[in-house]
């Protein structure tokens, strides 16, 4: 046997990237008011200062730039953030059934947002930006809490983290329940739509802010890819190989909280993308995080853009919250994985 090297599936990332671009074009073009691909291209060229000969109406331009493009791009950014976060969280929990919401960041962010919605509803009506900030703070607080638990000792096991996540989710669930009990009819409706998850709040501001957080988190996580590979040998084994497990855990928790907190702030809780996507990628190219992390980001983006497109079209002109759709598809997948894993034991 010559010096056999790990064969990276070099084709995967370019393929996923071009699929993502194609999906974005497709998702922008379909809707109640259809836009042709060449009209989109023309409008984009015009926007970039290059004129073209293809005709499109001002209404179409408004729909493209003010509604559809920010929404589709937001879907890509959030889907990407959830996909890569899922892969990293599964790596750090050494469990392919883990999910970003497991450490409680989604629930913490959602609870803080819901609290703001119900308790300070007048303020929220006047200052719409309060909601995202509250979600950031909630997600950040939970991150800090989990971080403290992880930092408490160098021997903090993933079991501890897992149990902390369960406790935080239970507390947040109780808080959300209490708030729905206290809420009036309109607030309850807002709350429900928040927890269902949807991309209808998309605009260029929310896209910019979320995009910044997700890209920063993704960049940080990809740098940890090799450490995550070694971590899959076990905490003690990784330590023998010179890796600080507790430091790696803290880094992943913070970066995942950044991406997921930013996503929940603008789109509520969108589940199962973080579970399904890394699984699919692992099936195709194996578990090497150096490829798994970027590929999960790209595939997560593609899937959420597609899911949101379906959610917009299914009951048009009304919209289905995309969180319902991802849960409808993701939950059976999760059960399937559970059954399959049980069989193997």
């Amino acid at each position: 046997m010559p010096f056999q090297k790990i064969k990276h599936s070099q084709w995967l990332l370019p393929l996923l990237l071009s699929s993502l671009i194609a999906t974005i074009f497709l998702a922008v073009s379909v809707g109640v008011v259809p836009l042709e691909i060449k009209q989109i291209t023309a409008a984009l060229l015009d926007g970039a200062g290059l004129s073209s000969s293809i005709e499109y109406s001002p209404q179409q331009a408004i729909i493209l730039f003010d509604i559809r493009l920010p929404r589709v791009l937001l879907g890509a950014v959030i889907g990407g953030g959830l996909g890569i976060s899922g892969a990293a969280i599964q790596g750090i929990f050494r469990n392919p059934l883990a999910e970003p919401s497991l450490i409680g960041v989604s629930a913490g962010a959602a609870l803080a947002a819901a609290f703001t919605m119900v308790v300070t509803s007048q303020l929220v009506t006047a200052h719409f930006w309060l909601l995202p900030i509250a979600a950031f703070v909630g997600g950040g607080l939970v991150t800090w809490l989990v971080y403290q638990i992880a930092a408490r000792s160098s021997t903090a096991t993933t079991g501890t983290l897992l149990l902390a996540g369960i406790a935080i989710n239970a507390m947040a669930g109780a808080g959300l329940g209490l708030l729905s009990y206290l809420a009036d009819a309109q607030q309850l409706r807002n709350l429900v739509f928040w927890t269902l998850g949807g991309l209808d709040a998309a605009n260029w501001n929310s896209l910019g802010l979320t995009g910044l957080c997700v890209f920063a988190a993704a960049f940080g996580l990809i740098r940890l890819a090799r450490a995550l590979n070694i971590f899959s040998l076990g905490e003690a084994e990784a330590g023998h190989l010179g890796l600080s497990s507790s430091r790696l855990k803290k880094q992943v928790v913070v970066l995942v909280a950044l991406a997921v907190g930013a996503s929940v702030a603008v789109a509520g809780i969108i589940g199962f993308i973080g579970l399904v996507v890394p699984h699919l990628v692992r099936l195709i190219i194996g578990p090497d995080h150096r490829l798994l992390l970027p590929a999960s980001a790209l595939l997560g983006a593609i899937l959420l853009v597609l899911a949101d497109m379906a959610a917009r079209l299914m009951i048009a002109p009304a919209e289905l919250p995309v969180g319902i759709l991802t849960a409808l598809l993701g939950a059976p997948f999760f059960l399937f994985l559970l059954l399959r894993q049980k069989q193997r034991l």
Binding site: Q4, I6, G91, R94, P96, N229, S232, G234, G286, P287
Partner: peptide
């Protein structure tokens, strides 16, 4: 081993 790495990996 948490994930299905190859022996070489």
């Amino acid at each position: 081993l948490a994930f299905p790495f190859s022996v070489l990996d």
